[in-house]
Amino acid sequence: MKVALAQISPHLGDVKKNLALHLEYIEKAKKKRTDLLIFPELSLTGYTLQDLVPDVAITPGDSKELAFLLKAAGKTAVVLGFIEERAEEKGIFYNSVAYLFDGKILHIHRKVFLPTFGMFDETRFFAQGKNFFTFPTPNGRTGMMICRDFLSYGAGYLLFAGGAEIIIAISAAPGRGLSGEEGFGSSRMWELMGEMLSRFSNVFCIYCNRVGFEDGKPFAGGSFIFNPFGKLLCLASYTESQMLIQDIDMEESREARKLWPYKRDDKPEIILESLKRIVGKYEY
């Protein structure tokens, strides 16, 4: 199957412009006969929204933007990031990712790990998601994460335990840390997790980050795909907008599991019981 990573620079706070940008990339991807097109975190809104959050939120099922995108995407699976205000939870806002296919939203993941330290301030503006589910797609069983979620190996484990064959992480990760090397020090952190997760979960690990600046913060691109053996298949620029296209062979997931039975030998029930005992000792 053909995967396209839209490493874009969204317009901050302008959903209309971003919708046009998405439609442009969907057209491009369709021309290349792409099966799965992935946009970065908050691709429909930009990242540093602060008090703009309520103004740019959309409600799945009642959003003309999503209706446009569902129609344009058709049989190309499209993954994108947006601010979600659920119909049954008005006034509560999530940093969400949706998987669109064939006119339907197959799954929505709400960001669980909301970074709030240093330059990040997400719990001030977002409600916390509560789940890591996998779901079936025509392109294999899939699990999704958003940015900081991906840096939690617990979260990665849950998608592995849930039977994921593809793990998709969308991101708006600023680059930071200089050295004599090309690129930001922080880029290596994402690549390391991608390599680890793909290698030890025997999954395709697909990371789509954004580029561009917001209030001086440089988003560090470097989108990538690792195959289920932990091999880097492609790596995007750390600075430039681009659409990265990669053919992947889903058969490799089976091949990797045959050689390395991590999934067969997993012990979720022991992990669950052990976690219960650890959490049970918390002092409240």
Binding site: L178, E182, G183, T239
Partner: peptide, 20 residues
């Protein structure tokens, strides 16, 4: 404290262009 000259030059030029 060390920097990669070509990388920093590229980032700062992108910053100037984009903020403008």
């Amino acid at each position: 404290m060390n920097i990669n000259g070509p990388f920093v030059e590229k980032i700062l030029k992108l910053f100037i262009r984009e903020e403008m």
